[in-house]
Design a protein around this nucleic acid. Structure first.
Lengths: 358, 358
DNA sequence: CGCTTGATTTGAAGCGCTTCAAACCGTACT
DNA sequence: AGTACGGTTTGAAGCGCTTCAAATCAAGCG
């Protein structure tokens, strides 16, 4: 009970109470208090009550830093995300929840224009995160694998060839395929794709588009316009199409919702009816697409479930001792909303001269 | 040099190198190595070189947790943000930079639908953040003041009556005023405001609108439609207006860019020309408004400068010993883009019967 | 050549919390 | 009475790093 320590309360903010203070207050050892506060078995019910009371009175909050240091475990999951992405923002919400359910906490580290992925993950590791969840990272597979050798890494949203890290993603090619199928079943034949640029995700979706078009015998109609994951790219693609003059393609499958919304907006602005003249499909089923006035037909890849699986994968390695990489591929599903409908005039649609089979 | 510690490398991930390992490698004490690595004066140039080399070879990364614990200071600034806000995402980028310039690091904590502000700030405090920057918090002033008694708190973006915390914000009323002025100078008279709901920021902007309208002798045209900070609210407002039939107000000042974009989109979709028939102004000059196809006239509140000021305010308290609250109010400025222009037919605009002065 | 001096280096004491072996205690048995 | 034995409590050793007073050392001086 010798509280001869530096109280440094000389006029400044009141010193934050420590375990020692609580212990002194109930006349017990810090060890006991610590056990009570962490819910460890041992202390008697009476002790528990007294300690909790004292802690509450003093407004004691454990010092996480010290706690993390003392415990070998930190129960921290680091999440790397893209600063502006609506979809990532949603994932983050779900990750917080999932982590909490498993008794883990989350630290966020954003990738911004001045802060690359390397920097983001470093920070996370420095905070002693026990595992990392990376949202749609663009780093090459080798780099990710290297990171994965250091600690459990779960990549969310994209394929990572070569293994070494866990992957949770949805079948992107399939998702885009569903979008194309949907459009063809409505009677569309001139369907183009505005892609997401370099990167694995974009490649998969592009492949899905090509494959589906071929499956419908529409290889003659294949067309991919270069884009990326932003509204601006969608708008750019729309302007490109408009500049080429009529007839416009009747269906557009965009890389993601951001891109689709940009496209949508530019088309509408140019007086093109959606879905009257052109149908548009996005990807992600993000908040953006769900907005009533956007009401975008899109592909849902179950953010919540992916978040759960990602956290589960991390926890399995951490607490379950799994050491072999795992890949979880969820099935995406189309969400039909208001931006898709039958093409304006089916008869006039075979513009590029590919005959349909009877 | 007695490395009898637990190496626990039994098959698992290689033990992370510690200061001790680096020290052993160069045959010096951990104290020296620590000083070199933290750039403290003392160690000779030769020692520095050797230590840095060894550290690099071992891939040593300081354990931040331990470091934070040992140092009284953590040099950490906690930032609380709204999960989905584009504007906050931008602020975060600037905050990262500003903090770095001052030698501080940033931890993020998001407010989501399942994670309230209390929770967000608690996490931040638990991480031993030395100061908090809260982006547009909705917590009542008293609560913020209470937090401010615990550690330096900078509220960014809104007024906080009663003091107790530092505030960095722009003159919202003035900003909205500029928007109204801009519209009136173009000849608009029927100008409405779609507000941001409850909350200090919304109140200030609403007030700015009212005041400016009165200043122009347009009290008869005053109209505020209830909204919030989302696209959906903007769209809702637009539908409301459209349902009321022509004539539409010729000018709309929205609470923020999100809201304005929703409005814009719904109007355009309904065939209303912007700015031909209706002019729209947003607020924030966020990435959203800058997108080429949105091209929204809006009010810039200098995110970068606010971020800088916020960090500066925190640092002043932390390192400069300031203890009296401070408020920084920056002047916002209108950014004219493509969604505002002269009203369709000035003569027909006085619909509600308020006479202009000759 | 002994001594002072400034430049380096280091031992050791923490930072606040966890953990675990050992100590303690009152009770139940033999 | 003596011994065991669960249930509790506690002392003490860290976790990995910082810091600072004290030790060390080489050079410079009278």
């Amino acid at each position: 009970m010798d509280v001869s320590r530096d109280h440094r309360a000389a006029g400044g903010a009141p010193r934050r109470p420590r375990l020692e203070d609580v212990a002194a207050r109930v006349g017990m050892s810090v060890a006991s208090v610590s056990m009570v506060l962490s819910g460890a078995p041992g202390p008697s019910a009476a002790t528990r009550r007294r300690v909790l009371e004292a802690a509450a009175e003093l407004g004691y909050r454990p010092d996480r830093t010290a706690s993390l240091l003392a415990r070998r475990r930190t129960h921290l999951v680091g999440v790397q995300l893209q600063a502006g992405s609506v979809f990532h923002a949603e994932l983050v919400e779900d990750l917080y929840e999932a982590a909490e359910r498993h008794g883990y906490d989350v630290v966020l580290s954003a990738v911004t224009r001045t802060r690359d992925e390397r920097r983001a993950t470093e920070t996370l590791v420095d905070f002693r995160c026990e595992a990392l969840v990376l949202l749609g990272p663009v780093a090459p597979a080798a780099e990710l694998a290297a990171l994965g050798r250091q600690l459990p890494v779960v990549v969310l949203g994209r394929r990572v060839p070569g293994g070494g890290v866990d992957v949770v993603r949805s079948a992107d090619a399939d998702g885009v395929g569903q979008a194309v199928d949907h459009l063809t079943s409505l009677g569309h034949r001139s369907i183009i794709h505005v892609d997401g640029g370099r990167g694995t995700i974009a490649a998969d979706r592009r492949r899905g588009y090509r494959r589906a078009m071929r499956a419908h015998g529409l290889e003659g109609q294949l067309r991919v316009i270069a884009g990326d994951n932003t509204d601006a790219a969608g708008a750019r693609a729309a302007r490109l199409l408009l500049d080429e003059g009529r007839p416009l393609p009747t269906g557009v499958v965009a890389f993601n919702d951001h891109c689709a919304v940009g496209l949508l907006d530019a088309l509408t602005r140019a007086g093109v009816e959606v879905p009257g003249e052109v149908s548009v499909v996005g990807y992600d089923d993000s908040a953006l697409s769900r907005l009533a006035h956007v009401n975008l037909t899109t592909v849902n890849q179950d953010a919540r479930r992916q978040a759960e699986q990602a956290v589960a994968a991390a926890v399995e390695r951490l607490d379950g001792g799994r050491t072999t990489p795992r890949e979880v591929v969820l099935a995406p599903h189309l969400v039909v909303r208001g931006t898709t409908g039958p093409p304006p005039d089916p008869a006039a649609d075979g513009t590029l001269g590919v005959e349909t089979r009877p």
